[in-house]
Every structure is written in C-alpha cells, then in structure tokens.
C-alpha cells in the first residue's frame, strides 16, 4: 500500500512542479489572499471553485444531442427532455456547491512522526449550518482519505496520514476538499490552508552508544559529597549540625548523638553529545542521536542531550523523551 501511495505522491508533485516557479508563487499568493490560512475554516462562496466533471460534460453533450433531436424531429417533448436535463444541471451546480458550503474544517492535533514514516493529522469536519454534507473527499499531497459523510453527526473526526520525508517542522500544502455529490456532474472543490504543522523527528539510525556517555557512578551519576538524596552513614554529632539530622532512633537506643550523613547526585552525568556520535554529517548525527535517545529512553536511564547551542538537562520519562526528540527535530 505504501509503495503505491508514494508513487502517486511523486506523480502529484511532479505535476505541481511542472508549473513554472513564478506562476506557482503567484498562484499561492492569490490563494492566500482569497483563502487565508486559519485553524478553523468555514467554506463559503469565496472559497469554493466549481467546474463540470468529465461526466458533466458527457451529460451536457447528451442534453445537446437530445436538443438537436427535438428540433429535427420537431418533437417538443424531446426538446423538453433536453431542457429538463439542462435545468437539472443547473440545480446540480447549486446543490454541489451547497454540499460543500457551510462545511467547517477545524485543525486538530498532529502526531509527530519519524522521517520516512507517516505523520498523523487530526481534523474535524463540522456543520456550520443545519444541513448534511455528503461524500466529502479530503486530499492532501495527492493522498485521499475515504469520502466522508456528515449526515446525522454534528462533527466527525478525520485522520489523515501523510508520509514525511525530511526532519523538521512539516507544513503540509493546502488541503484539497472535493465533492461531486449529488450527481457527479459538477466538481466543487477548495484548497484550504490549515494552520497546522507536524514535527518530524530524524529517522533513527542505529549506532553504538559512545563510551563517554557510559561513565559515572550509580546509574551513571557522579556522587557529590553533600546532599540529601541517599543515606550515606552516620558520624558523631557536632554542635553545628541541625537537630533534624540527628539520628534520634540511635539516640534512643544508645544515648549517643549521631548525625545522619547524606550525599546527593550530580544531576548531569549521562550525556548524549553532538561531538560523540560517530557520524560525520549533521543530519546523520541527528539521526543517530535520535536512535540513542529512543534507546536510552527505552532503558529508562536518565540522560541529557547536548547539541551545539542547546542543552537539555538529564531526565527521564516520556515527556523528557519527547522534549529531546523535538529538539533534534527542530535543530
């Protein structure tokens, strides 16, 4: 499935790039003026384009042939038949238009992806007017979601999976919304720019954990003498010690005052560092760091990430992992 999709995507792209660059730029500018980007778009007459489909032209030709037949056979009812087809065509234009107009598209969340995999874009289709919308086709970068109906529901979620290629922030092109409902004679469509973006993490590339990152004491942390994290032992009480640190249980047992000693851990110990990954090229470095971040996070060990100009303090948990991956994505 994915292979067929990528081919059609490439086809779509090459079709698009067939337009010369200035034409494309002007087209984009015109679109931006006419259909400004937003997070919530309600389709109205300014945004909807309309043109007959191939079938629509076939239908019109049929009406024309019947018109000629009606004239030549001097048959007013055949003539009327062709007038009916014409009128139905006009109604189809209005109905197809009406089927799209009032549709409300709301940008939802996106789910980040690793480069080369599919990013999930969540959208909502809703009604701004009390009418149904049928067979709405969403198309993005040449990929279509299956047609949607908004008949009883007020709002339905739509998830679009878009393949990603490069690391970074993925701003998809304009979303194309099409419908030929009810008669398939007219295509009504629009391109809307949704204020949506999706993070694309680097593609993880397997590599060895650099040796420097493995040094350290317990769990890779270097102990520091003073602190309150772990109990270290007892020593004789001194005048200046806080009463809170006196081991009162020992006192109760022995009558001697002892002070509990603790040590803490230095927070920076296990670091994934830019310079320490084997690859030469920046992108590959990022990919390897990405792999390492995932690897470390899977192991549950706290780690920090250091890139030129960016430093993330060590930590663990999904949130920390996410933060690291985002940093790699945006670097």
């Amino acid at each position: 499935m994915s292979s067929s999709m990528s081919t059609s995507s490439r086809a779509a792209e090459s079709r698009f790039s067939a337009l010369s660059r200035p034409v494309r730029a002007r087209w984009q500018r015109w679109l931006d003026r006419r259909i400004p980007p937003g997070r919530e778009v309600v389709l109205d007459q300014r945004r909807i384009f309309i043109f007959p489909t191939l079938m629509g032209f076939g239908y019109l030709f049929t009406a024309f042939l019947l018109f000629i037949a009606g004239i030549n056979y001097d048959n007013s009812l055949i003539l009327n038949f062709s007038f009916f087809l014409g009128s139905l065509f006009v109604v189809a234009i209005l109905q197809t238009f009406s089927n799209l107009s009032g549709l409300e598209i709301t940008a939802g969340t996106t789910e980040p992806a690793f480069a080369g995999t599919e990013a999930k874009f969540n959208l909502h289709l809703g009604k701004s007017r009390r009418k149904d919308h049928c067979s709405i086709l969403l198309e993005w970068h040449g990929f279509a979601a299956e047609p949607r109906n908004l008949i009883d529901a007020e709002k339905i979620p739509v998830q679009m999976l878009l393949p990603t290629r490069n690391r970074g922030v993925f701003h998809p092109e304009r979303l194309k919304i099409t419908s030929v409902y009810p008669l398939g004679l007219i295509r009504a469509w629009t391109w809307i720019a949704l204020d949506m973006e999706c993070l694309v993490y680097p593609k993880p590339v397997v590599c060895e954990l650099p040796p420097q990152a493995q040094q350290g004491g317990k769990d890779g942390k270097a102990p520091v003498p003073e602190g309150n994290e772990d109990f270290d032992g007892l020593r004789a009480y001194q005048e200046t010690d806080s009463l809170n640190t006196v081991d009162w249980k020992a006192y109760a047992r022995s009558g001697d005052l002892y002070t509990k000693r603790f040590h803490g851990y230095q927070a920076e110990s296990r670091w994934l560092q830019w310079d320490q990954v084997p690859a030469q090229y920046a992108e590959l470095k990022l990919s390897q760091l990405c792999f390492l971040v995932l690897d470390m996070a899977r192991g549950g060990t706290p780690f920090g990430l250091q890139l030129p100009g960016v430093k993330i303090e060590p930590g663990s948990g999904p949130e920390h992992q996410k933060r690291c991956l985002e940093t790699l994505a945006r670097f």
Binding site: I68, I71, N72, Y73, D74, S76, L79, N80, F83, F84, G86, S87, L88, V90, V91, A92, Q95, P182, L183
Partner: peptide
C-alpha cells in the same frame, strides 16, 4: 434527494420549454 432535485429543476425547465427560442429542423429527417 432525487425527488427534490427533479422538483427544483421543473420551474426552469418550464420557462425554457415555453420561451427558449425554437428553431426549425436543421436537416430533413
């Protein structure tokens, strides 16, 4: 839906039927 569309088409059809200028046969049949 179809009934609705057909009914909506009828007024325009009637106008075309009565008022669309008729021309004679283009060729003899």
């Amino acid at each position: 839906v179809s009934l609705k569309l057909v009914l909506q088409s009828i007024p325009l059809m009637i106008v075309l039927f009565y008022l669309f200028p008729r021309i004679g046969p283009l060729w003899q049949l």
